[in-house]
């Protein structure tokens, strides 16, 4: 699978161009590649036209505003919502009213906290542990 690197500033223009060429947006995949030292996320845009496929790859740190390609592709609505909810990437134009209903206390379940592995990220429940009498 070959991916084409692009910048997030060029993304919307490129999406329009691809739409003009007849490419169909198949999916948007966000992956968190953060390590202990840096926060890094990649967003892949998968396009298809008949039997050909193309993949655009955008890197982001997951904190700054992120462009939306909703104006070019109407079916990006759910996909961008999921991007925001699963990875916490603040996609432009996606307001508080979210399409995917997660439980309130779960925030961005696919986001990797720096220096914290997935396994230790269980939601901590305050246990009313009995304090042993002195």
């Amino acid at each position: 699978m070959r991916t084409e690197e692009t910048k997030k500033e060029n993304l919307v223009a490129q999406a329009y161009e691809m739409k003009k060429e007849g490419w169909r947006l198949v999916c948007i995949t966000g992956t968190d590649l953060s390590t202990d030292s840096e926060q890094k996320m990649e967003v892949l845009y998968h396009f298809a036209r008949e039997n050909e496929v193309r993949h655009l790859r955008v890197e982001t740190d997951g904190t700054e505003n992120y462009p939306s390609i909703l104006s070019a592709y109407a079916n990006a609505l759910f996909l961008e919502n999921e991007l925001k909810e699963m990875l916490g990437i603040p996609v432009d134009g996606i307001k508080g009213e979210l399409l995917l209903r997660l439980e309130d206390e779960v925030k961005a379940p696919l986001k990797r906290l720096r220096g914290v592995s997935y396994e230790t990220r269980e939601i901590k429940v305050e246990k009313n542990a009995e304090v042993a009498p002195q």
Partner: peptide, 16 residues
Amino acid sequence: DLQVGYCHRGLERIFQ
């Protein structure tokens, strides 16, 4: 108006 997401099971997370 359409709303989905009522049976989210976090499978993509489990697949890791």
